[in-house]
């Protein structure tokens, strides 16, 4: 099918063009929100490879975010290593961690909820470890030095304005989308879906289940840690307490589940919906002026979406928009 005749592709390209033009008009506030949306979408897509495509439930993805963030951040702080080089180290460490967790989990047949708890355990274990590791600042945190010249964008060192971070985040999100799509349309994507639907049947058909699941874990881990590097340089500070926390793992997967797990566009839609919901409720909460109202409303909205659209918002919206169905 030609790209330009596919209605989905047209919509997508239109959206992309719009997103590329946003910094011309947007203020710093809107830009920072959009960066949040993009990075959440990116991380959601990274998790989606493992859970949505291959059906392996990880609740500890904060581990890879944190490993990437700390590898990029600490190398930059100590040796001035550019983040793109640091990212390679971060991805390598995350792949190593993924190999350990995946091998142990899959070889020992830890499945479903148990596997999810194993991933939480590893993330929490690492969090406490980093809390006591002096080289990365332990529990008092690691701080990235600000750029000497704040107005000059240095893409190689990732020091610069919100606009630059916006384009980097947009680039990462587009790349992750394209990459996810490419994965899904290849043999490995079909293998994953077969395993997700029925692992024993996939095994009986001759798919190397262990190897195929491991590939999903490793790709997902590497993608997630790159998001971690971005977060380190965007926020300029790192605390084990927050970067490795279970709350981050949860935040990371919420958008994808709300948007539609296993779909390509679900993580993006979910990130938009959740961020809009969060920001809207913050404004509303500031008007009401009671602590906690925002979070309660947030919880109720999550619950409503689950009750009304358990398959996620994107599959529903897609059929309302009259776009081609199928698995994506």
């Amino acid at each position: 099918m030609s790209l330009l005749h596919d209605r989905r592709a047209q919509l997508l390209l239109g959206l992309l063009a719009l997103m590329a033009l946003v910094p011309l008009a947007a203020g710093d506030y809107l830009l920072s929100i959009l960066i949040t949306v993009l990075i959440q979408a990116y991380l959601g897509m990274s998790w989606n490879v493992m859970m949505g495509f291959a059906g392996q439930f990880s609740l500890g993805h904060a581990l890879y975010v944190g490993l990437g963030a700390y590898a990029g951040g600490a190398l930059f702080v100590h040796y001035g290593t550019p983040p793109w080089i640091g990212a390679i180290a971060g991805m390598a460490v995350s792949v190593l961690a993924g190999t350990v967790i995946g091998t142990l989990g899959f070889r020992f047949k830890v499945m479903g909820v148990y596997f999810a708890l194993l991933t939480i355990a590893f993330a929490e274990f690492t969090r406490v470890l980093f809390d006591h590791w002096g080289w990365v600042g332990a529990s008092s945190g690691l701080f990235l030095p600000p750029a000497a010249n704040a107005s000059a964008d240095n893409l190689w060192l990732l020091r610069g304005s919100a606009t630059m971070f916006y384009y980097v985040a947009l680039g990462m999100t587009v790349a992750a989308f394209w990459f996810s799509r490419a994965l899904l349309m290849r043999r490995i994507g079909y293998y994953w879906q077969a395993i997700r639907e029925d692992q024993d049947a996939a095994d009986a058909l001759g798919i190397d289940v262990f190897r195929t699941k491991m590939i999903a874990v490793l790709i997902s881990a590497a993608m997630t840690s790159l998001g971690g590097v971005f977060l380190a340089f965007f926020n300029n500070n790192l605390y084990p307490e927050s970067i490795f926390s279970m709350h981050r793992s949860i935040e990371l997967i919420l958008g994808t589940i709300i948007g539609g797990i296993g779909t390509l566009f679900g993580p993006i839609l979910g990130a938009v919906v959740l961020t809009a919901l969060g920001e809207g409720l913050t404004i509303l909460g500031a008007h009401i002026g009671i602590d906690g109202v925002k979070q309660i409303a947030y919880g109720i909205c999550l619950m409503l979406i689950l009750i009304l659209k358990p398959g996620g918002l994107w599959p529903w919206l897609r059929s309302r928009l009259g776009l081609a169905g199928g698995t994506r």
Partner: peptide, 12 residues
């Protein structure tokens, strides 16, 4: 989501 609601009611 239930946990979020309960924790924040307690917090409130």
């Amino acid at each position: 989501s239930l946990a979020i609601i309960i924790t924040n009611i307690v917090l409130m």
